[in-house]
């Protein structure tokens, strides 16, 4: 029930924001992702793949500077005004104040904005007339091979990032690699929110076999996993599974997507 109220309240907030739209600075470049058939790595061999329509995706994650514009235009999303239901106490904790990233944080203006909740990410995308990618879209986009770096396997590349503790200062966007779609930093910089981040697993114990979403386990039921050796994917899905909509985490940001005009009837 609480959740229903939260969503209703949230939707009402969104509609407020769309009215407060003001001049938006230079539009972020978006690139086309082909779409196609998508199968999560943990489904059984008999599961049907999901058909993903082509879509446009931000070429890189939303930056602190870009998010500041959003907060200025929508003060309800400033640090002091935001409702705890929509963003926990870590919300934008690396910023100096409500409307300042801070002079000492100059080197992160063009770094991905992190410590933002799912609700905030959705509000931002909606303000830009965009939306958050769903999990299938994000995975299809993220699985494209790098085009400008030397690598042996994409899984190895991802694992290297996963293994290293977070850096004290987050590098700028477009500092890792660019994939064949022209998308930057799909892996190796931050985690990214997806619209349906927790749709695949509902419990914390990755080996649980007692409910429907029982495909991601490393114990008995991992026989359902088609690629049991894709540890990078295990980690990514495991991370998403522990999130809640109001969580703000120092390595978690987002980018937006948009339907292609031709997708609409």
């Amino acid at each position: 029930m609480k959740v229903v109220f939260a969503i209703l309240f949230f939707i009402s907030c969104l509609s407020c924001e769309s009215q407060s739209k003001i001049n938006i600075a230079a539009e972020k470049k978006m690139v086309k992702v082909k779409g196609g058939k998508f199968k999560t790595f943990y489904v059984s061999k008999t599961d049907k793949p999901l058909l993903v329509e082509p879509f446009l995706m931000d070429e890189c994650a939303v930056t602190n500077k870009e998010f500041l514009e959003f907060v200025k235009a929508n003060p309800a999303w400033s640090k002091s005004k935001v409702k705890r239901l929509f963003a926990d106490s870590n919300y934008l904790k690396h910023w100096k104040s409500d409307f300042e990233i801070g002079e000492s944080n100059k080197n992160i203006y063009n770094s991905p904005v992190v410590n933002v909740s799912w609700f905030a990410a959705i509000a931002y995308c909606s303000w830009k007339n965009k939306r958050l990618p769903n999990l299938a879209e994000w995975e299809i986009a993220g699985n494209a091979p790098p085009q400008n770096i030397q690598y042996t396997s994409i899984t190895d590349y991802i694992m290297k990032w996963y293994e290293k503790p977070s850096l004290p200062v987050l590098p700028n966007v477009k500092t890792t690699y660019c994939n064949t779609y022209g998308l930057y930093d799909m892996h190796g910089l931050i985690w990214e929110w997806t619209f349906d981040f927790n749709s695949f697993i509902s419990t914390g114990d990755s080996r649980n076999t007692s409910n429907n979403d029982n495909n991601l386990f490393c114990a008995g039921a991992s026989i359902n996993v088609t690629n049991r050796e894709d540890y990078a994917a295990f980690l990514r899905y495991g991370f998403r599974g522990s999130l809640r909509g109001n969580y703000c985490i120092s390595s978690l940001g987002f980018r937006c997507v948009k339907d292609l005009p031709s997708n609409k009837l």
Partner: peptide
């Protein structure tokens, strides 16, 4: 269930 794992899936910066 899970010896506690069920109750303690904890994202960075969070606690359970």
């Amino acid at each position: 269930p899970g010896g506690g794992a069920d109750a303690t899936s904890t994202a960075p910066g969070q606690s359970t």
